[in-house]
Design a protein around this nucleic acid. Structure first.
Lengths: 231, 231
DNA sequence: GTACATTTGTGTTACATAACATATTTTCAT
DNA sequence: ATGAAAATATGTTATGTAACACAAATGTAC
């Protein structure tokens, strides 16, 4: 059992469980499995065929694609609770990205036919999945524009703000509640690791952020927003 | 009436009409409207609230976002028949992109409550929309990686191949069945207009394509694929 | 505790591409 | 037809960032 404080129970996955009828709840409880993934463990790989719907119950996950020359691009950072790897399932294709735990994770696996039955019997399930898609497509399109058009400083600032939006702060309201390597930060911001390190240093010098190892504090949020906006 | 040879009838929109029960078909026929858009006419704008589901019955549409300094980025090229502007509807947000007809278009408009009723009463409608989302999210993620990582030649080659995939060839099996300005090609390929023009010229010199005004012929398809792959 | 691998940090160089300038051609309104 | 505006074409320069090289710090295995 991972020691992340959360009970490994699909009842804690509101997007799905909370909208079901009592009958469907029973059906779901009897027809899903719980899986644990350790930090750095791969959850699925590009090319794998999805066998069902994954729900991230607790932990954090990065979803990334191999680009030109093996350079990896992180296309999604996932916080719990959230659907995972569902694009390939509903497109009826193989996965076009890989997913890796960046913290110990609990994942609920719902077989393909089970989730399709639930979608058919419950309109809210369908609506929630549609909404997840719609929100994620919006995010992805937004990112396409900013990753291609913003300069390094703007891209990095934006990425830090996204990490804040996705994972939030620790109790001090300033420390990002996620630990990433410089390489991950670079792959999320479409830049080389060198440039991510260099630009983080610049931000520290400008007192926009504070860095201690992999711990990042956002010291001057308005300024970071400004850097992100300006591009 | 636009002279595009297609009958303006939602019965010709298979993703939706073909999967409905007789009862739902009647309901849909009685509860939708048909709209015509001339070439270059805006269909919706960033910030508009969607009032229903749009279905592109005939014609061609570009969907684009305003980027840094007003620089526009085409995020989707749409061929008929296809859903349009549905992301904002299901995300329950305003449009984050604009849509413009690049040819005369026929568009069916289905009010919000009508489409949600159809989704609730028919599992195939839901499945088709989920699939549209899944496919488009896949496309968008793929694009994010190639637009950020490929070099100019690779990006342009890939864009031309996407136009082939989306709109196909004319009867000669070589001429792309879509007419775009150099600026649109640039905005679809994430480069300046100058560089789009320059690189198209290079491709012509290398006998990969042939250009006559806005008409583009793909002369050496394998070579174009190679340029796209290499990046 | 030492050796080794990995991650982080910094300076330098090379290069792709945006920005700019300008010319030419096409389109369109009158 | 004619002038104005828009689109297309091409050369030059400036600049941001990747690539490379290397050093220091940190983590890990034995």
């Amino acid at each position: 059992m991972p020691d992340n404080g959360l009970v490994a129970d699909i009842k804690n996955f509101p997007q799905l469980y909370n909208v079901l009828s009592d009958e469907d709840k029973e059906y779901l409880l009897a027809n899903h499995s719980v899986k644990y993934f350790a930090k750095n463990e791969k959850i699925y790989r590009e090319g794998d065929k999805p066998k069902g719907l994954l729900c991230l119950g607790s932990g954090k996950v990065k979803v990334y694609k191999a680009g030109i020359g093996g350079r990896e691009q992180i296309v999604r950072m996932v916080a719990a609770p959230n659907f995972l790897g569902y694009r390939a399932l509903f497109a009826e294709e193989a996965h076009i990205a890989s997913a890796e735990a960046i913290e110990d994770c609990v994942i609920y696996h719902i077989p393909k036919d089970v989730i399709f039955k639930l979608i058919a019997s419950n309109r809210k399930v369908c609506k929630n999945i549609l909404k997840s898609f719609a929100v994620e497509l919006g995010f992805t399109r937004y990112r396409t524009v900013s990753l291609t058009q913003k300069h390094i400083r703007g891209r990095l600032a934006e990425s830090l703000l996204f990490l804040r939006d996705i994972y939030g702060f620790k109790d001090d309201n300033i420390t990002l509640d996620v630990q990433l390597s410089r390489e991950d930060i670079a792959n999320f911001s479409n830049m080389t690791t060198s440039n991510a390190i260099r630009t983080l240093s610049t931000f520290v010098n400008e007192k926009v952020i504070a860095v201690d190892g992999r711990t990042i504090k956002i010291v001057d949020e308005p300024k970071l927003e400004r850097i992100s906006k300006l591009g």
